[in-house]
Design a protein around this nucleic acid. Structure first.
Lengths: 254, 254
DNA sequence: TCGGGACAATGATATAAATCAAGAAATTAT
DNA sequence: ATAATTTCTTGATTTATATCATTGTCCCGA
């Protein structure tokens, strides 16, 4: 049995998939049991092939493992930890385009160079495939392609939400949206009325994700605290007494 | 879904697609001739099937043909004109996530409701498919799936560029990036040293795309004119005397 | 040819967020 | 533990862009 395994959530990510026939696992026990993370949407034979083609890698916190603009040889599946994806301007301004967690694929580049950089936020586990191998596998097993299409469609929706945030929301709304996003990441569809979240990233990362400065992010957290929209405890652990109130703020209904 | 935007880095747009065997067109003469907009990456037999499954629709300028949040029954391919995709906040703030032109697919929704709205900028021709039919066709012809994956990957790159623009660029840089994006749309890889473009959208649309106000967009055009980065002629026809200088501004190297 | 309505440009002023500056916590190293 | 860093918070001030207000320009229909 191969020791290399794709993340458990790899194929269960998108709650509802784009197209018929992709309903697959959205947390299926089967995946858990098999321990390979690639869900029932893929046949066992395909799973075998994927697993054998992957190399497991561990990246310590704070390491850039995809350099912006470098040759795009590999394709990754996150099996542990959180990764930040970013783009930069020549003078150092930086935009984090997303935080991706367990189960996400990355490296679906358009050209033969990565259009973005990737850095580990915490210690991260990855499954690495060569892209040429992935192409071969896709030829053989179209279900992989379907899985990637579903992932891409989900990311596209997230990207559009983020564009609305960056283009039109206030700092207050941005931070609220961000916290709601983390809640979705943690709870998916079944959102509790109150919740706690852990933020592995720094204020600076949050600022670069929300198109703000560290100071504004910090001030906004303080304001949310003052308004009792988040609990008093500072730092990385955030208590949210009323998820719905926060959602209202984040979606501009505040 | 959203396309376009194509700022700075997006200059290395689609041309080369994600995966082997997807080289196909993004405006190929063949498509023009065939008149269905579905590119050469698809075999003739598949094209036949797609064409027969599609209904051709003409939408006059300024019509919303996808209502935000409405049930996602259909899937479209743009065969003429320009479409704007957008998301709104309850109080009317709006973000245009992309302008999409001939050859683009749209409606690759994640759920059974569209996450965005779509409105024609000019008179638009569309091929409409039912999504269920598309699913059937995809089962039969995996190359369609591959084509959609390529499109989605391209849009994702464009979306990341747009996030960098919205989160970190100045008004000056945003407008320059926007113009460069239109140039890429028109000329693709082979960019002339100087060029003219026609902007079918209003200043208000440009503002909603760039996360600015109409006034700022107008002022920025005036500034670019004053700096001789664009020609003196006002309105929708823009002359760009030095494409490379504009690109430098747009990519933050100004 | 004229007149009305949308679109665009420009000026004056307001403001949200950035920048500059300093101290307080938290983390890591010694 | 204690020192050295880094991260976070808060305050004072500046600034880029938004907002408000006005005028000019381009269409299109009568």
């Amino acid at each position: 049995m191969s020791t290399v395994s794709l993340s458990d959530q790899a194929l269960r990510r998108p709650r509802r998939l784009v197209l018929a026939g992709m309903e697959g696992c959205t947390n299926c026990a089967a995946c858990e049991v098999r321990g390979h993370g690639v869900c029932s949407a893929l046949a066992d034979k395909e799973l075998e092939r994927l697993s054998r083609a992957a190399v497991k890698v561990t990246v310590p916190a704070g390491h850039v493992f995809i350099e912006e603009g470098s040759a795009a040889h590999d394709f990754f599946n996150v099996t542990g930890g959180t990764v930040k994806l970013f783009k930069s301007l020549p003078d150092g301004r930086r935009q984090i385009t997303g935080f991706v967690g367990v189960g996400h694929f990355l490296g679906l580049a358009v050209s033969d160079h990565y259009a973005f950089g990737a850095e580990s936020v915490e210690q991260v586990q990855l499954c690495r495939f060569s892209r040429t191998k992935l192409e071969t596998l896709m030829e053989e097993f179209p279900s992989i392609e379907r899985r990637l299409l579903a992932e891409a469609a989900n990311e596209l929706v997230a990207a559009q939400d983020q564009m609305l945030l960056l283009g039109r929301k206030t700092a207050h709304e941005r931070v609220a949206s961000f916290l709601c996003g983390r809640l979705v990441e943690k709870y998916g569809e079944c959102m509790p009325p109150a919740a706690d979240i852990f933020l592995p990233m720094t204020r600076a990362d949050i600022a670069d994700f929300l198109g703000l400065t560290v100071e504004t992010v910090s001030r906004t957290f303080s304001r949310l605290r003052r308004e009792h929209l988040i609990g008093a405890g500072a730092g990385q652990d955030i208590h949210i007494p009323s998820v719905s109130r926060l959602e209202a703020i984040g979606s501009g209904d505040g």
